[in-house]
Simulated assay, not measured.
Amino acid sequence: MVDVRLPTILRPAAGGAATIPAEGDTVGEVFADLVAKHPALRDQVLTPDGDLHRHLNVFLNDDDIRYLGKLDAKVSSADTLTLMPAVAGG
């Protein structure tokens, strides 16, 4: 299980939870499990094509997944994924 930390704006779609455990060997698999458990998160996290929405930044521990292989980045049970809203104009 990987802990997925949600920003305040996404918590209502996850029943108010700040952190959700999810399973998978890659970031993409973790997100698939996350949206299977909380379907309301799907449109807020993933595009219709299954890509990560541009308005979110995702960190695997302290590293931005854009530099680790994006949704193909490998994860382990010791990892934490943190979703953060992207800052416009920054």
Rank of each mutant, 00 (worst) to 15 (best):
V2T: 14
V2R: 01
V4K: 04
V4G: 03
L6R: 01
P7H: 11
T8C: 04
I9C: 09
R11P: 02
P12G: 04
A13P: 00
A14G: 01
G15W: 11
A17P: 06
A18C: 10
T19I: 15
T19K: 13
A22N: 03
E23T: 14
D25E: 14
D25Y: 07
D25W: 07
D25R: 15
T26H: 03
E29W: 05
V30L: 01
V30K: 00
A32D: 15
A32P: 01
D33N: 14
D33H: 11
L34T: 00
V35I: 15
A36M: 05
A36F: 02
K37E: 08
H38W: 05
P39M: 10
P39Y: 08
P39S: 09
A40Y: 01
A40R: 12
L41K: 00
R42K: 13
D43W: 00
D43V: 02
V45F: 01
V45I: 14
P48E: 11
P48H: 06
G50Q: 10
G50D: 05
L52F: 07
R54C: 04
R54Q: 13
H55A: 14
H55P: 01
F59Q: 06
N61C: 06
D62M: 07
I65R: 02
Y67E: 11
G69S: 09
K70D: 14
K70F: 11
L71H: 08
D72Q: 15
D72W: 09
A73K: 02
A73D: 03
A73M: 06
A73C: 10
K74P: 07
S76D: 13
S76E: 12
S76C: 06
S77K: 13
A78I: 03
D79G: 07
T80G: 04
T82P: 05
M84K: 11
M84D: 06
P85G: 07
A86I: 06
V87S: 12
G90C: 10
